[in-house]
Design a protein around this nucleic acid. Structure first.
Lengths: 124, 124, 124, 124
DNA sequence: GTGGTCTAGACCACA
DNA sequence: GTGGTCTAGACCACC
């Protein structure tokens, strides 16, 4: 599988986003080891330096921690992951609200739209 | 202004999407003239043939009509624009729901999230 | 009005065909005067020499006759026009039959097709 | 072989029409591979881009499907080909009727004309 | 090899 | 001026 990367955002950040999404979806669990820089570079079809920058960025955000000689691990500090989860969620919601407002819709119409696609509130 | 284009989707379609968004947001009104092919090409930093293709695609979708020797105009057929609006709205909602489900959230949590950012239901 | 001419057939013959069609449709009547070479050239947007060849060709077919100093006239010899009519009609029918056979249709299917588009036989 | 193209219709559509005719006449069978863009361009004496446009148009009409890296193939969806056949047939009939009406003939005369060329109804 | 996109530059018909 | 078509030649992703 060859992934494609948008021209408008640095690749290392795009990969960081992807990893964050995997953490939020619990596909990567707290404390779990990430693939090595070299392995991830091969998987992603990019230069190892790029992955190095990705991991540095994630570490700067306290989302991962690297242990010398052992590798890079998802943080197990729950408060960090909680905040991360909220942040990602907030971004999705804000983007949605912005788009819907562009379409001239009110909050009630947004909710009705969601209910139309998922069935009435209370179900599911 | 130099715009950047994603690598994963043809430029002519990305520009078409941009125009559609402008129509849906009422930045381009029904019956309004679009920039000429050559002018839009300069604005967008692409070859006129690419814009030609964009306009052809929009015409094929009945979103735009061309009058020979005069230019390209947003359709003034309301039913077309209504359907377009619904289609874009549906896409926004589906994308939102997909993202939120990725985050492991239920429908009620989605709605609560929106209400948190916009105030309780019934207000605005 | 600028007419267009196919690249695959000489223009002078295309114009001859057009005149023949007008005669067959009785838009040009037996004995009626055709426009002068110069006038027809202007009407058709071509060189007078081209019309001259058209008229010569029609005269060779005995469809028109030219009277020196007076102009070019549709023949009034009914037998010529009758034969012409049959010839044109035959060409239309043969072309139709050829096309329909290409589609793998039998005669009865052709007739049914016509009836479908014009109502049942005996009406109209 | 140098083909000639009418001035009044885009070449890419004339070639599309030709291919459609070949499909309807079963000279091109369902599932059969069309010549590659470059090969067809040479055969037709036009630029590859023109054939590309022809194939795109045919794909838009669902008459043809392209498989990446493999080529362009006549669809094998029978219902598409049936509809196409009916459409072409309708066009042939309508053109015939138009021509015959131009000649001032009634429906019965059209049918008699066909029977004169193919023998009486019921035979064949 | 295949189809698909893009650029550069030309010519056309229409108004 | 407008949009529409066509050529020439390039680069891309996929197989």
């Amino acid at each position: 599988m060859t992934e494609e990367y948008s021209a408008s955002k640095p690749i290392y950040l795009q990969i960081a986003d992807r990893i964050i999404r995997e953490i939020v979806r619990k596909e990567l669990l707290p404390g779990e080891k990430l693939p090595s820089v070299r392995e991830m570079a091969v998987q992603s079809g990019v230069n190892p330096n790029t992955i190095q920058r990705t991991y540095s960025e994630l570490e700067r955000m306290d989302i991962v921690e690297t242990r010398r000689g052992q590798g890079t691990f998802v943080t197990d500090r729950e408060e960090i992951l909680t905040v991360l989860n909220e942040k990602v969620q907030r971004e999705v919601i804000e983007s949605f609200i912005r788009n819907m407002k562009d379409l001239g819709l009110t909050k009630d119409q947004m909710i009705q739209g969601i209910e139309k696609y998922l069935g009435q509130r209370g179900e599911e």
